[in-house]
């Protein structure tokens, strides 16, 4: 009897603690979104709903430029990383060779090195070989950062791919190339989408690598926001940040639906 009361008490405390912590996790995000729609901005009490901050934010050239740069970087690094990662995943899943385990660790290595050092190393090295300060510099940094994720996700989706689908295509008269394009790639589509999206969103939100590699002409959105809020602190920045959050949430929901967030993320933490 007393035992069950105690149990209930413990359970209730655990629930309360967890919800308090979940609140702690989401309060800052909620506050930002709230401010971005509040017509009195930071001032309380709230004065009503407005889209004014968004209008103002997206009429500012530095943010538009930031979005452009970040989109280019996100799309570019997602495409490049997947193009490089796919043959590696194919080799890891379908071939046995010496040094396979080593290769696996090697392609994950960007996750093992602190971003501070990757940023510094790329900055120093690319400047040294005369590649400093352009779009390519940023793109290289972002590709390095997202390659491990692409390899992880593509390897996972290749390893659950049923090889008999390819055999059936071959039996139906398809050449290897035909079976690859008509069967293998379409069946792996969701894996590719998940991989592309996660690469994109990591690049889209990156701060640590970008701040080392950005130049005044090529400034990704997060760096643009950072330099803005250093000097000017207004509801307009809340609107920009909220826009970024909305895109991230959209991506998270899509990734979660098609591939499972925990599966993708924890595989990388498994290292």
């Amino acid at each position: 009897m007393t035992n069950s009361i105690r149990q209930t008490f413990y359970r209730a405390s655990l629930n309360t603690l967890t919800y308090a912590l979940l609140f702690f996790l989401f309060f800052p995000i909620a506050v930002t979104i709230f401010v971005s729609f509040n017509s009195s901005g930071f001032l309380l009490p709230p004065q009503g709903f407005t889209l004014e901050w968004y209008e103002r934010a997206w009429s500012m050239t530095q943010f538009r430029r930031g979005v452009f740069v970040s989109l280019m970087l996100g799309i570019g690094s997602a495409l490049l990383a997947n193009a490089l990662a796919f043959p590696i995943s194919l080799a890891l899943v379908r071939h046995n060779f010496r040094g396979k385990a080593a290769l696996n660790v090697f392609v994950m290595s960007p996750l093992l090195v602190p971003t501070t050092i990757i940023g510094l190393a790329l900055y120093v090295f690319l400047m040294n070989i005369g590649l400093g300060g352009g779009f390519v510099t940023l793109l290289i940094g972002h590709v390095m950062m997202v390659i491990p994720f692409a390899v992880r996700i593509l390897t996972a989706s290749l390893s659950i791919f049923d090889r008999s689908l390819e055999e059936a295509a071959r039996n139906a008269g398809a050449s290897l190339i035909r079976s690859f394009f008509s069967i293998t790639l379409p069946v792996l589509k969701t894996g590719f989408i998940a991989s592309m999206m996660i690469c994109f969103i990591i690049s889209w939100n990156d701060f640590a690598i970008s701040i080392f590699l950005a130049s005044s002409k090529w400034t990704p959105l997060p760096i643009q926001i950072y330099s803005h809020i250093q000097f000017q602190y207004d509801a307009v920045s809340a609107a920009v940040v909220s826009s970024v959050i909305f895109l991230s949430i959209f991506a998270i929901v899509v990734i979660d639906r098609i591939a499972g967030l925990q599966k993708i993320l924890s595989q990388n933490a498994g290292n």
């Binding site: 008999s164 055999e167 059936a168 295509a169 039996n171 139906a172 290897l176 379409p186 069946v187």
Partner: peptide, 20 residues
């Protein structure tokens, strides 16, 4: 001969129907 050059058809245990 590669499988696509043989005059035969194959039914798989798991059917191997193309899901897309």
């Amino acid at each position: 001969l590669p499988p696509n050059k043989r005059d035969l058809s194959f039914v798989f245990q798991n059917y191997a129907l193309w899901p897309h």
